[in-house]
Design a protein around this nucleic acid. Structure first.
Length: 853
RNA sequence: GCGGGUGUGGUGGAACUGGUAGACACGCUAGAUUUAGGAUCUAGUGCCGUAAGGUGUGUGGGUUCGAGUCCCUCCACCCGCACCA
């Protein structure tokens, strides 16, 4: 055995072996319990970053652990390979997205292998390959057939920088999720997936995913945004029209004193009387000129205009004026709102501004509110008043009763509204899956026939960066014949949102080479759902919602029998680091700083906030540099030890040093003790001296702790801390020579327990301990319950709840004995002296509390 | 506004069903070793105090023999949704 720990040599040697023997290649084996460990696959940007290192290190611990426990573990890796950066790179570097992407994949694959992650590389897939996306096109055809994919003209989000439309989920604060530029609204003809058909089921299942973090479930519930109420019709006075409204507060119907329509409402023009049309048109123009951000921010001043028409309240015949109001959105509900100023704050403000009447219909308990005295709307519960037959009911009952009445009268019905909109999936970009559709002058929108698939993305393309998608100008692609009538026709030149590919890659992993269909059902039946999914929380309402939706789609197309794809979800925190900047040169990389000064101009460097590592702010650590300096095991160990997986990780170079020192200590632990433990007998538990029994107890306690910390709970940082304690305990063990078999067991435990975290060094140490077979074949250690039992216990003695002493008692001492020795402690006696002992509480195995007074 | 979450030493973080708060690590201090530095080893390290002891988990209160943990109040910060009818 070498004296010094040489990580690079060891790691490369094992990685070469693993490449050849492919120890993690799996197939369906019904004799073993399966475990599908999935990590969010990366976009092939070119290099892995610390976020990947962290994500995949967490996953690899669990994969290796489960394998050692005897599970048949599927642990795949692939590439989310379509997307904008490839196109931008092609324009900038005069290359082709396909070449750029494949080179990046090759680089990153090497980097992942250099980290020692235990993937089944045989299942690797890249979504930009026709043998992947052809199946996506097939599923699209089936969705089209069922009306689950459709094209419509709608006001959509347009990113001028990316020159494409975006889904609602991809707009954050009115900005593009990718380039952070301001998004515009445009009326365009686009492809949608009917996710709204699944709104209720997606919502319902958020209550049936106990393995998901509450925060993600809540975000999805918010996004789906269900509200229940009813829809009802208001007749227009003197015209043969009705205005349909949606309300969640039918109980306030008697309090409706006016009506607000969205400026875009189809009836807006019809209801405007000629003498008001000038004013109304001016108002509509003004609202349309304001951008969406202003219009939907709470601070936007409520404004409106009277149309001159009146509606009739169906329950009491009241004649109420119809307004157009800037805060009413056409995209939600029916685009018309019955305004109840006494019980809705927005309506209240609007009514005060335009001097419209208030009618109180819900009286809160214990106070009297009236139109004259109200300074804000009462939105809380109460008793119904001024509501005809419904007076005296509590308003919750009133909601039910009024809805029933409306239904009985045929004036309305109970109704549910969702905030979620259909998923806009077409993109005006080149580097994506072609949408397999043809436009024919005679036959209209015609799907490509299944036999024609895949519609391959053409590669003979020039990238100028101008004029939108290069596909549209590629005659050889665009010009085709109609699948139905054979006449000349044009291909769809939009491609799919890349989130379509990532919505089902985890299903494809089950049978990645299947060339008959998207998936092999038996393989999906065996492996899915994924037992554990690990990735960043930024996909809470994007990928994680789409993937759930797609799974249900494939289920309803009878391709799989699965309701939900991911049994357990772990959202790991971000990797953060302080930003550093120079007044002259802006953001600085860590290696551009020398002794707190800018390497170029020697100006003092200013430290900024601790935030997510990002290239744009240059607060990044390159995994490659870390591996070269310390090895992959240290890189893995630090990201796992520095903080619990779900929390953000603060980068700390000294912490990395500390982890490297620890691995050196482990190395030395084996090296120094090897002569003592090379040839020893089995442990004979019965004949051990107290100190050896103590060490053995520590070793077994650690096995238990590490097992329980990894399994299900992901307390990886405390698992590592526990092994560190064991190492400290072994180093301090005084009787190494007289109890070598216990020493060996303890040292072996360290090596075995650490192996999922730092596999290379452990494998090497295992061999040095004399084993020929791989550590991966050795199984996970099990603790001996009997070894956990202590001979003596340390009992804390409190007087009136304050710690005054500690006594050691035999483990089997009864309460009386424990109490007696507690009271006999000299320091405890000091505090009891002269006082009456009122009560003594003995907590077996823990403490004694003496209550005096 | 609604919903979710988080507040513990100089720092990252521990603490099972209420039972020694601060495990483990970083940093720091002192010492050993070393030509020096690094590495390594030993001891110490919440705060106040020479000590005995006091005090301490965002604030204030409550339950309890005993509260970081349970209940109530308030505060701060983070995340998601938001004129959603």
């Amino acid at each position: 055995m070498q004296e010094r720990y040489n990580p690079l040599e060891i790691e490369q040697s094992f990685q070469r072996q693993w490449s050849e023997s492919q120890p993690w290649k799996v197939s369906e084996d019904k004799t073993k319990p399966k475990y599908y460990l999935l990590e969010m696959f990366p976009y092939p940007s070119g290099r892995i970053h610390m976020g990947h290192v962290r994500n995949y290190s967490i996953g690899d611990v669990v994969a290796r652990f489960k394998r050692l426990q005897g599970y048949n573990v599927l642990h795949p890796m692939g590439w989310d390979a379509f997307g904008m950066p490839a196109e931008n790179a092609a324009i900038q570097h005069d290359t082709h997205p396909a070449i750029w992407t494949r080179e990046n994949i090759a680089n990153m694959r090497t980097q992942l292998k250099r980290m020692g992650f235990s993937y089944d590389w045989d299942r690797e897939l890249a979504t930009c390959e026709p043998d992947y996306y052809r199946w996506e096109q097939l599923i699209f055809l089936k969705m089209f057939e069922k009306g689950l994919a459709y094209k419509k003209s709608a006001a959509v989000n347009w990113c001028p920088e990316c020159e494409t439309v975006l889904a609602n989920e991809q707009v954050e604060d009115e900005c593009c999720w990718r380039c952070e530029n301001k998004v515009e609204q445009k009326e365009l003809d686009q492809w949608f997936f009917r996710i709204t058909n699944y709104a209720e089921e997606l919502l319902e299942w958020t209550g049936k995913l106990p393995g998901w973090p509450e925060s993600v479930l809540t975000m999805q519930r918010n996004w789906i945004g269900k509200s229940t109420g009813c829809e009802l019709d208001f007749a227009v006075d003197g015209q043969d029209e009705t205005v349909r409204v949606f309300t969640t507060r039918p109980d306030t119907l008697f309090g409706a004193t006016f009506m607000s329509l969205a400026p875009e409402h189809p009836l807006a023009k019809t209801l405007t009387v000629p003498e008001r049309s000038e004013e109304v048109e001016a108002f509509v123009k003004k609202v349309q000129a304001a951008d969406q951000t202003q219009r939907t921010s709470g601070e936007y001043e409520k404004e409106g205009v009277f149309t001159g028409s009146y509606c009739i309240n169906p329950v009491n015949g009241a004649r109420i004026p119809v307004f157009l109001a800037n805060f009413v959105l056409m995209g939600y509900g029916t685009g018309a709102v019955m305004a109840v100023p006494a019980h809705d704050q927005r309506d209240f403000e609007f009514a005060r501004k335009y001097d419209l009447p208030l009618q109180v219909v819900i009286q809160p308990e214990g106070e009297i509110v009236g139109p004259a005295t109200m300074s804000e709307a009462w939105e809380g519960p109460g008793t119904m008043v001024n509501s005809g037959n419904f007076d005296g009911l509590d308003n919750e009952t009133g909601k039910q009763k009024i809805s029933e009445q409306l239904e009985a009268d045929g004036a309305g019905q109970k109704s549910v509204n969702y905030r979620i909109r259909d998923w806009l999936v077409s993109r005006q970009r080149y580097w994506g899956t072609p949408i397999p559709v043809v436009y024919c002058d005679d036959c209209g929108t015609v799907p490509v026939s299944e036999e024609e698939l895949p519609v391959k993305l053409p590669t003979d393309i020039k990238f100028t960066g101008e004029g939108g998608s290069p596909l549209a100008s590629l005659e050889s692609f665009v010009n085709t014949s109609c699948p139905e009538c054979g006449q000349p026709a044009r291909r769809e030149t939009d491609t799919f949102d890349t989130f379509v590919e990532s919505s089902w890659y985890f299903l494809r992993y089950a049978s990645p080479h299947c060339d008959k269909s998207p998936i092999e059902k038996s393989a999906v039946d065996y492996w899915l759902p994924a037992d554990q999914y690990i990735g960043g929380v930024e996909h809470a309402v994007l990928h994680l919602l789409y993937a759930r939706f797609w799974t249900k789609i494939m289920r309803d197309l009878d391709m799989i029998s699965l309701d939900e794809p991911f049994e357990n979800l772990l959202t790991q925190g971000m990797v953060c680091m302080e930003t550093q900047s120079c007044p002259e040169h802006g953001w600085l990389y860590p290696e551009e700083i020398e002794n707190g000064r800018c390497a170029r101009c020697q100006a003092a460097v200013v430290s900024g906030r601790n935030e997510k590592m990002s290239k744009s702010k240059k607060n990044v650590i390159d995994p490659d540099g870390l591996i070269k300096r310390y090895g992959a095991d240290t890189a893995r160990l630090f990201t796992l030890f520095a903080s619990p997986p779900e929390k953000d990780l603060e980068w700390n170079d000294q912490g990395v040093e500390g982890c490297f020192r620890f691995l050196n200590r482990v190395w030395r632990l084996v090296y120094d003790n090897l002569p003592t433990i090379e040839a020893v007998a089995e442990v004979d538990a019965a004949s051990l001296q107290p100190s050896a029994r103590e060490l053995r107890r520590l070793a077994h306690r650690t096995i238990k702790k590490v097992t329980e910390d990894i399994d299900g709970s992901f307390h990886l940082n405390t698992a590592i801390a526990a092994v560190m304690e064991l190492v400290n305990g072994i180093m301090a063990f005084p009787d190494k020579e007289s109890a070598p078999e216990v020493l060996r067991e303890a040292i072996e435990s360290v090596v075995r327990l650490l192996s999922p975290f730092v596999p290379h060094i452990c494998e090497e140490l295992w061999q040095n301990l004399g084993y020929v077979d791989s550590l991966q074949e050795s199984g996970w250690p099990v603790w001996d319950e009997e070894a956990l039992v202590a001979d003596t216990l340390l009992i804390v003695v409190q007087v009136n709840g304050k710690v005054r002493g500690k006594v050691t008692v035999p483990a089997d001492a009864d309460n009386e004995t424990v109490e007696a020795s507690a009271l006999a402690d000299t320091n405890v006696a000091r505090f009891i002296e002269g006082k009456t002992v009122r009560k003594v509480i003995v907590v077996p195995g823990r403490l004694v509390n003496v209550v005096v007074g």
